[in-house]
Simulated scan of single mutants.
Amino acid sequence: MSTRNSQSNKSAARERIRAERERQKKKDRIRRQLVVAISVVGVLAVAGGIGFAVLKANEPTAWEAAKEAKVIKPAHTQGKDGTEILIGDKNAKETLEVFEDVRCPACAAFEQSSGETLNKDIKDGRYKVRFTMYAFIDGNAGGEGSKNALSALGAALNVSPDAFLKYKSALYSAKFHPDEREDVYGKDSELLKVAAEVPELKNNNAFATAVEKGTYDPWAMRMADLFGRKGVRGTPTFMHGDKKLVMDQIPQQQMTQAQYSALANANFKKMIDKEFGPAKGAEAGKNDGKGGDKDKGEGKGIREGEKDPTREN
């Protein structure tokens, strides 16, 4: 091979190597640009995601929004925002106040042992009852079952006070009432399942729609805002005017559920008799004959314009 050809081959080889290096540099440059671009997009996406998350975090929850929303008062309520639930014979001279939270296990125990006695006293006109419903267990245990069940109780009260009492009893029943730590009543489906036990609410489309749409959520939040009313921060609590009523404690000893319920009901009756005097048989607390049985209440509660003797200024 001539020296000339040898030099020519070396020159061509060098050119190929140079060209290959240039191509590789170009590839590397493009790769770096793509990496930077993807990184920028990733950063923007993350930033956008963070921004969206921050925006969502700052958005009010449905219950926070309900707290500011316009209140639709259930029928058969009185007072500002309809937060006075007063049920019973308009002619009953006394008013017993009952403070409850739907998730409260002690309230469930009271309802299961003495709920029928309370409802009978209401029906007999022995006293009216003002129910103040709290939702503080949602804050203590987490969840929204107290508020959600309270909203559903508003829908039941809109049907009738009798439906309200029956539904409240069903929610507290041994069959349905959940452990305090379980937020079962946060689900509308569970509330509607319980409502099927109440004749006035079973297959009641208006009631079901109100529960599912949260029609009375704002009302429930106003009710929940009454926490601490008259200094009451625990449930169940019973008051007559400004006087807190106290039941005898049940002794710590082994007993059946039936024995416990019987003793708890006896203690409730004893407390009521001590405060309001003993019941006067089947005729206890009936009206004075002005208007007959139609004025016995039938779950109609206090009439419009009548002053609630326990209402605070």
Rank of each mutant, 00 (worst) to 15 (best):
S2L: 09
S2I: 09
S2M: 11
Q7A: 14
N9Y: 06
N9A: 14
R14E: 08
R16E: 11
K25Y: 11
R29S: 07
S39E: 09
S39H: 00
L44I: 12
A45T: 10
V54K: 10
A62N: 14
K67C: 06
K70Y: 11
K73S: 02
H76L: 01
H76C: 12
T77G: 04
Q78G: 10
T83Q: 01
A92D: 02
E94G: 06
F99K: 03
D101P: 01
G115P: 03
G115R: 05
G125K: 12
F131S: 08
A141S: 04
S146W: 04
G154Q: 02
S160K: 08
F164R: 00
L171F: 09
L171S: 00
Y172K: 07
K175Q: 15
E180Q: 08
V184S: 13
G186W: 15
K187S: 07
S189E: 15
S189C: 06
L191C: 06
K193D: 06
N203C: 05
N205Y: 03
A210D: 13
P218Y: 10
D225H: 10
F227K: 07
G231R: 13
D242N: 15
K243F: 12
K244H: 15
V246W: 04
V246K: 08
Q249R: 10
Q249D: 14
T256G: 09
A258N: 11
S261R: 13
A262Y: 10
N267G: 15
F276L: 00
A279N: 04
D288C: 02
G289H: 10
K290T: 12
K294G: 15
E298K: 11
G301I: 08
E304N: 15
T310S: 09
E312Y: 09
